[in-house]
Design a protein around this nucleic acid. Structure first.
Length: 569
DNA sequence: ATTAGGG
DNA sequence: CCCTAAT
C-alpha cells in the first residue's frame, strides 16, 4: 500500500521496500501556486480538500503565495503524517521552523543557494550519514528567500527494512534566480516525500481556480509545464534519492560531509527550460519564450490542439495522456538521427523513452545517465579528482554537491568511450569482440543488482539501450564471466592480484568483483542484498568468507536463491 | 522472444 | 562470442 505508485506493471519488486511517499501532489501544488503568484499576484490558500489522500497519507498543507514587488513570499505550515497501512508503519514528522519558504528579498543579499540535507540512518549497529550541499550562484531575480527546515523522516518497512531512520535537515539560505529556484523548491518536497511518478496529475481538484486563468493556451501551457516540471523534478528527486536513499548507498557510497570533493550532479536543463517557459507565460499571454522553444512550444501546441477536440476539464484530468501525446509529438527524433545530431536529439529521444519507463526504471537510468554507479563502493577504488565542468557538458545550472567521494567511474566512462572509438578501430576490436569497458561493467552490475540475474533484456533495454552491440546474451555472458572472476578473486584474495592482472579480469576493480560476488549469493532484492552490507567491505578487508570453491558455486547458489524474485510480485 | 548453458 | 535447447 505504501508503495502506491510503485506497483506499476512489472518488475516492481525493486523499490517496494523503500516506502516512498508521493511528492507529486506537493510538487503540483507548489508549482500551481507559483503559477498563481506569477499570474495574478493574488494569494491563495490551499483548500483542505486537496490534502493528500493517498491511502496512507494524511497530509495537511498550507501554502500562501503572494506576489509583491517581485518578491514572493511563501510559507508553509508544518504537516504531520502518520499512517499505518498494511503492516507498514510510516510516519513522517515534518518540522518547519520558519516555514518552508520564507522569502524576503529585503533581508537577504546573498546570492547563493544552499541546499543541504542530511541523511542519518541507523541500522543494526551501523550509522550512516550523508550530507550534501547544493550551492548555486544566482544573479537574476525573482526571489530571495531564506528558509530553514528540518525534516525528520522516520519510516520502516516490513521485513528487513532499508532505512530505519532518516533525517533530512535542509537549509535554503538564499535564492536569487527563478531558474534555479523552482527546481530547488520542489526538490525540497520531492526529496522528503519520496515516491513514484506514475500517479496522474490531479489538476482538476482546483476547478474553481482555473476560471481565473487566462488564455487556454496559457493554461495548457502551464499544465504542460507543470507536467514537465513535475516529471523533471521527480527525475531529479529520484536521482538524489538514488544518491542518498536506498540500499546501495548504505553500502558505502554514502558519505559524510567533511571531504571537500565535489560532485556535479546534474545539468538540469529540463528544469531550466521548464521554468523559463513558465516564467514567460504571464508576460506573453501564452506565448513562450523559453530557452528551448523547440521543446516547450511544441508542448504548448499539442496541448492546445487537444483542447480543441475535447473539453477543457477532460484535458486537465487526463494529463497523462496529454503528456504522452506531447511526448509523442516530440518523438520524431529517432535513432538514426543520433549519429548526426547526437546530443540533442539523443536527449529528446531518451526523454521520450523515459516517459514510458516506470519510475523504478527511471531511477536506474538516472543513475546511469549520471554515471553514478549507485552500489559500487567508490571509496575503495581510490577517489579520482572531481570531474570538470567541461566534462559535465552543461554548466549553466548544475547542482554541486560536496560529497565525500565522487563517482569514480564517471571519468573512466568518458575515457572508455573515447578510447573505445579510437583504439577500437585500430586493433583491439576484433570483428565480434568488443572489450568490455569498466563503465559497462558497472552498468551491468548495477542493473543486475536492481533487476536480478536473468533479466538481461530488461537490463539491456534500460542501461544498454544506447549501445547497439551488447545483446542481452552478451550481458548474461559477461555476468557469467564476472562471476567467475569475482570468485576467483575472492579465492586468491591478495595473493593473486598480480596473477589476476596477467589474466583477463585485469582492470576490474575489486570492489566491483566483490559486489558481483555478493549479488551472486543474495538475489534480486536489494533487501537481501543489504544484509551483506558492502559498506565496510572495502575498508575492512572483511575476509570475505570464502564460502565456496569458485567453480560451481555461484550458478547453483544463484538458481536456488533466485526464485525469491516471485516473492515481490 | 528470452534465457540458460555448453562450446 | 556463438549456438542451441528449453521455456
Amino acid at each position: 500500500m505504501l508503495a502506491v505508485g510503485i506497483g506499476e506493471s512489472k518488475g516492481s519488486e525493486l523499490f517496494l521496500e523503500d516506502n516512498w511517499v508521493n511528492p507529486i501532489k506537493e510538487v503540483d501544488n507548489l508549482v500551481y501556486n507559483l503559477f498563481q503568484v506569477e499570474r495574478g499576484g493574488f494569494s491563495l490558500t490551499r483548500p483542505d480538500d486537496e490534502a493528500i489522500e493517498v491511502d496512507h497519507l494524511l497530509v495537511e498543507q498550507h501554502f500562501v503565495g503572494t506576489f509583491d514587488d517581485d518578491v514572493m513570499y511563501m510559507s508553509s505550515k508544518s504537516f504531520q503524517e502518520c499512517s499505518n497501512v498494511s503492516d507498514i508503519p510510516c510516519s513522517t514528522d515534518y518540522h518547519d521552523q520558519e516555514g518552508i519558504l520564507n522569502a524576503d528579498a529585503k533581508q537577504t543579499g546573498k546570492h547563493a543557494l544552499k541546499y543541504e540535507f542530511m541523511l542519518e540512518g541507523a541500522e543494526e549497529n551501523e550509522d550512516f550519514h550523508a550530507t550534501c550541499n547544493l550551492s548555486c550562484d544566482c544573479s537574476d531575480f525573482l526571489l530571495e528567500s531564506v528558509s530553514a527546515e528540518n525534516l525528520l523522516l522516520d519510516y520502516q518497512s516490513n521485513g528487513e527494512s532499508t532505512v530505519t531512520n532518516m533525517k533530512c535537515a535542509r537549509q535554503i539560505q538564499c535564492i536569487d534566480e527563478a531558474k534555479s529556484v523552482l527546481p530547488y523548491i520542489a526538490k525540497t518536497f520531492a526529496l522528503c516525500n519520496m515516491d513514484q511518478t506514475t500517479v496522474p496529475l490531479n489538476s482538476t481538484n482546483g476547478h474553481e481556480r482555473h476560471n481565473t486563468l487566462q488564455s487556454t493556451a496559457c493554461r495548457n501551457a502551464s499544465l504542460e509545464d507543470q507536467k514537465w516540471l513535475k516529471h523533471e523534478l521527480l527525475f531529479d528527486q529520484q536521482v538524489l534519492t538514488g544518491l542518498g536513499g536506498v540500499s546501495d548507498l548504505m553500502g558505502g557510497a554514502l558519505l559524510s560531509s567533511e571531504n571537500e570533493d565535489m560532485i556535479l550532479v546534474t545539468g538540469n536543463e529540463m528544469s531550466e527550460r521548464v521554468f523559463s517557459s513558465l516564467l514567460s507565460i504571464p508576460h506573453n499571454g501564452g506565448l513562450l519564450t523559453g530557452t528551448d522553444k523547440n521543446e516547450v512550444s511544441h508542448g504548448v501546441g499539442q496541448a492546445a490542439l487537444i483542447e480543441d477536440n475535447q473539453g477543457t476539464h477532460e484535458i486537465l484530468e487526463d494529463t497523462t495522456d496529454s503528456f504522452m501525446a506531447t511526448k509523442r509529438l516530440r518523438k520524431p527524433t529517432r535513432r538514426y538521427i543520433e549519429e548526426t545530431s547526437e546530443s540533442k536529439s539523443r536527449r529528446s529521444y531518451d526523454r521520450f523513452k523515459n516517459a514510458l519507463l516506470t519510475s523504478k526504471e527511471r531511477v536506474l537510468q538516472a543513475r546511469t545517465e549520471m554515471n553514478y554507479p549507485s552500489g559500487v563502493t567508490m571509496q575503495s577504488l581510490g577517489a579520482r579528482q572531481r570531474r570538470s565542468t567541461k566534462q559535465l557538458g552543461v554548466d549553466g545550472n548544475q547542482y554541486v554537491l560536496p560529497l565525500k567521494t565522487t563517482s569514480t567511474f564517471y571519468d573512466s566512462e568518458l575515457q572508455d568511450e573515447a578510447s573505445d572509438e579510437s583504439t577500437t578501430s585500430n586493433c583491439s576490436r576484433r570483428k565480434h569482440h568488443r572489450q568490455w569497458m569498466l563503465s559497462e561493467v558497472v552498468k551491468l552490475v548495477d542493473g543486475v543488482s536492481h533487476y536480478g540475474v536473468g533479466r538481461w533484456t530488461e537490463i539491456k533495454r534500460l542501461l544498454f539501450s544506447s549501445s547497439a552491440h551488447r545483446t542481452a546474451v552478451d550481458l548474461k555472458d559477461k555476468w557469467r564471466n564476472l562471476l567467475r572472476a569475482s570468485f576467483a578473486d575472492s579465492e586468491n584474495c591478495n595473493l593473486a592480484e598480480a596473477h589476476q592482472r596477467k589474466h583477463g579480469s585485469a582492470n576490474i576493480p575489486r570492489s566491483i568483483l566483490e559486489r558481483v560476488r555478493e549479488l551472486s549469493f543474495i538475489y534480486p532484492y536489494p533487501r537481501s542484498q543489504r544484509k551483506l552490507r558492502i559498506a565496510d567491505a572495502p575498508r575492512t578487508p572483511t575476509p570475505t568468507p570464502r564460502r565456496r570453491r569458485n567453480s560451481g558455486a555461484p550458478a547453483h547458489l544463484r538458481s536456488r536463491i533466485l526464485p525469491a524474485r516471485s516473492f515481490s510480485q
